[in-house]
Design a protein around this nucleic acid. Structure first.
Lengths: 220, 220
DNA sequence: TAAAAAATATGAGATATCTCACATTATTGT
DNA sequence: ACAATAATGTGAGATATCTCATATTTTTTA
């Protein structure tokens, strides 16, 4: 991670204005930070003392279970807050966040914590963010229980396919969808058998869009 | 549902003070409402125009999937907010909430919406509530993926057992744990086989507390 | 209090998903 | 460019979980 200054800082602050998040001047408390691909923004189990607002990039939120299993809980895509729960509750330790791409964040030091927690403008935005987060987690959670991988994968392929080609890393997706690598491959193979997908060098080509949509549409 | 007035209202407002949630006088906007056991507080799919703060009682949060499956998402136990997300986002339709016991709630009409959304005191409390909700859903969600029913049920029995006796409705619990009724019964039978539980008229008696704890402790 | 509805119970067979073992390609760091 | 590491791919066998059918008991309601 390194801190951007001068032109770079100004560049981002102009491109992604953040003044209207606060009713006081946030500039003295704000840094523009860049994380390289693969860097950890929060180490799992640490006690962060910074709130981040990611403006560019993509990251993954992880947690490790007692039994050693690691869950990729979700993909985080800009714009979003990170470490905001730790701002509200004292000494809350965090889950792990690792960048997937180069990532630019605004960091806000806890030295203005009091101001933040008294600022209705900021709090309101935080409420909306947290509410959406809760809603999103709830729906993802309930879906996973209610549908087999066949349906969830179909929905995911629709979402993530680019120009009719699905091309994601199996190792990541199986974690994200909460199934074993083996099983993911089984279901992909099954889709190929059924002529829904076709495996090519470039990735999996969608050849039966309708059938895929039909499988996916079960999932809301 | 009926609205409590006079002594009843005063009684609850004294027992569960709520003034310190707001920096303005909430009294003109507040009603004390009572829901009977089994009543629906929110009908699934409706657009609620009231924020509730449940002060006594217990309810269930449901959602129905496209495939007709119904998920019991969570048990709601006082104190907590309901309909708060709908306050923040316009026209958000809600999941279904049904009471399990007689329930007392403070209701706040949207006529003071502007005041609420400008009140840092209230917003801060809402943030904490939403943050906890998100965290809770996330951990429940990830656990369900990472552990078989054996472990999750053990944990749940520990939580819900009263005086060493587990006595819940199977029909509800299987929904809550996201498994079929049949499978829940299998695993309960298995616990009996293994002499962890013993089935009696009064419920399932825990006879091997250690083994149960061992199974449960896998789950964080 | 009889009939209807809900909850409990159990068997049998299917399916979704997992673990492990191992072989074969990419990708990446030095 | 080579070794190390990560990602891909596949088989075989186990286990977790589901669906459906059906019977019994308990609770609710007219």
């Amino acid at each position: 991670m390194h801190i951007l200054t001068a032109e770079a800082r100004t560049h981002y602050l102009e491109k992604y204005p953040i003044d209207d998040f606060f009713s006081f001047d946030i500039n003295p408390y704000l840094e523009v930070r860049q994380f390289d691909k693969g860097e950890w923004i929060f180490q799992e189990g640490s006690f962060p003392d910074t709130v981040y607002y990611m403006i560019e990039g993509k990251a993954k939120l992880y947690m490790t279970h007692k039994n050693g299993k690691v869950s990729l809980i979700e993909y985080l895509e800009a714009p979003l807050f990170m470490g905001e729960i730790e701002l509200l509750n004292e000494a809350r330790y965090t889950k792990g966040i690792q960048t997937v791409t180069k990532t630019i964040c605004y960091s806000i030091t806890q030295s203005c914590k009091e101001k933040l927690l008294a600022d209705a403008l900021f709090l309101r935005r935080l409420c909306v963010f947290l509410g959406e987060k809760a809603t999103k987690m709830t729906s993802k959670y309930t879906q996973n229980q209610a549908y087999p991988l066949e349906n969830r994968l179909a929905a995911f392929i629709q979402l993530s396919a680019d120009q009719g080609v699905y091309k994601e890393k199996h190792t990541e997706i199986c974690e994200y969808l909460g199934v074993s690598y083996r099983h993911l491959l089984y279901v992909l193979a099954q889709f190929c058998d059924e002529r829904i997908l076709e495996k090519r060098k470039t990735g999996y080509q969608i050849i039966d869009k309708n059938r895929l949509a039909q499988l996916a549409q079960e999932v809301l």
